[in-house]
Amino acid sequence: MAALHFHNVTLGYDRHPAVHHLSGEVAPGALVAVIGPNGAGKSTLLRGIVGILKPLDGTIHLGGLDARDIAYLPQSAEIDRSFPISVFDFVGTGLWRGTGLFGGIGKAARDKILRAIGAVGLSGFENRPIGTLSGGQMQRVLFARVLLQDASLIVLDEPFNAIDAKTITDLLALVRRWHGEGRTVLAALHDMEMVRNHFTETLVLARGPVAWGPTAEVLTPENLLVAMRMCEAFDDSAAACAADDISSRAA
C-alpha cells in the first residue's frame, strides 16, 4: 500500500492551478525530493498533502494516515517570533498528538523534549525565547519539533534555505535518521548536489510533473531544462482546463 497516492491532482488558488494534473504514488518509507524552479508548485503540493489546501480537482489519498501522523515544516516566515515563548515550550508543542488540549507534560515528556533539543544541538537553549534565536537556530528548533511529532509522514518545505553548511549537515543527518526509521519523507529542495547525494527519489515539478522516479534517472540536464522553461505565465482570462494535456504543457 502506498503512503501517498495522487489521482490527477490539481492544486491552486482562486481556480488558477499551481500544480496541474499530478498523478502518482509515494511508497511508504520513501525519501523524496521535490525540485523545480520558483513558482513550480512545490510548496503548493506540500500544502495539499498536509491538508491545508484542498485540491481544485482530483484526490490525494494518505493511505490511512490521520492528519496527526503528518509532520509539516513550512517555510519559517509564518511564525510569530516575537511571541514570548521559550524554546522548550515551543518544541514541546510537537507533543500535541499525545497531550492534546489538557494532557500534562510529565517527567517522561520533559525528557523527550530535552532529548529532541539535544538532538538538534541546542542543549542549553531551553529557556531562551524563540525571538532571540538566529535563523539557523530557529530551523534547528523546528526540526526538534518535527522530531517530537513522531510522524510517519514528514513534509519539509525548503528546510535548508539560508542555512549554513554545518547546520545543513546536522539536519540532513536527522532526515537520514528518519529515513532509516522507515518514515516517509518529502522535501522541497533547491540544491541539486544535495538531492543527488542524499535523496533516493526525485519529483521534478513544473506545475505538471516533468519527471518522477529514482534520482539518478530523473535528475538529468534535459529534465531540468524542461522544468526551467516551464511556462510561468499567469493568464487572468485563462479558459477552464478541458484536457489532461500535460505533456504539451511541459514541452
Binding site: V50, G51, I52, A67, R68, I70, Y72, P74, E78, I79, D80, F83, I85, F90, T93, W96, R97, G100, L101, F102, I130, R145, Q149
Partner: peptide, 23 residues
Amino acid sequence: AVIYRPLVIESVDPLFLRTVSRA
C-alpha cells in the same frame, strides 16, 4: 483555561496548529 494551549500555539504558529488539530 480550556482554550489556553491552542490559543498560545495559534498565536505563535497558526499553521502548525492547523496541521495537528482543529482546535
